[in-house]
Amino acid sequence: MSVIELKNLTKQYGKSRGIRNVNLNVEEGEIFGFIGPNGAGKSTTIRTLLGLIRPTGGSAAVFGKSCIEHPEVRKEVGYLPSEVFYYDGMRVTDLLKYSASFYKKDCTKRIAELAERMDLDLNKKIADLSFGNRKKVGIVQGLLHEPKLIILDEPTSGLDPLMQQKFFELIAEENRKGATVFFSSHILSEVQKMCGRVAFIKEGKIIKLEKMSDLQANSYKRISLEAESAVPEEVFRIDGVSDLHTKGNTVSFMFRGNLNTVLRKIASVSLRNISITEPDLEEIFLHYYTKEG
């Protein structure tokens, strides 16, 4: 059984916004990245999954059950929303106790521990907190009941780099203890560090779902070469080549596929210089967004 299962999940509001036929399975114990630019439908997907909004088509399940029909499955879910809002009049400690009261277990120790690690003052009023500190409350609030599924929506916005570091350590720790993590972000480098698999979403549709290792190591190469003389563009018009730029003697492109075919092509050119590098996710990502979208 998958921890998260989205089948043809569709949510339409208005004309253009929403998501269309999103299919995803997140398996137990993995850290799953959900990548897309702002407005692509990441938050909509999460909110539909959690039952905050109802799908117009398809289904969404957590631990095999719909959050709308079985709200109790949410007891194993910890959620950190992208924008954190709480009851302004409350103190941090009251809010966290209120949050803990929904889970029928004693979270006092855990709250103290998380607050210390995140350097959060429990006695302050929520209304007096800065955006970053509010986010910390959100992190503690999302983790205090040791959920089996952690859903993070743009978790690092507002956190300083040091806190981001601590936050990632915390998430990695939870993951080692067995928690599944669903990590939505538009910042690729942070997803790259943590996730095992990643789905790309654009304009409400999943455009690619891949293992991080496939994405990075095996398939994509960024190849730049400089030849002795001008290279006709047609030479590298082969399957697997994209983002092809030729300018005089220099050629650069992305390649995915059998390396031997491209190496034979390269060998046919008289070279002055060559570099073959791993593209970072950012490059792969931009590539999807410009070419396949």
Binding site: R47, G51, L52, P71, V73, R74, F85, Y86, D88, S99
Partner: peptide
């Protein structure tokens, strides 16, 4: 109004409750 629905409504309680 206070945007706390995203806090309360993801707790393991039904809307009816």
């Amino acid at each position: 109004r206070g945007k706390t629905a995203e806090f309360l409504a993801v707790k393991p309680v039904s809307r009816s409750a």
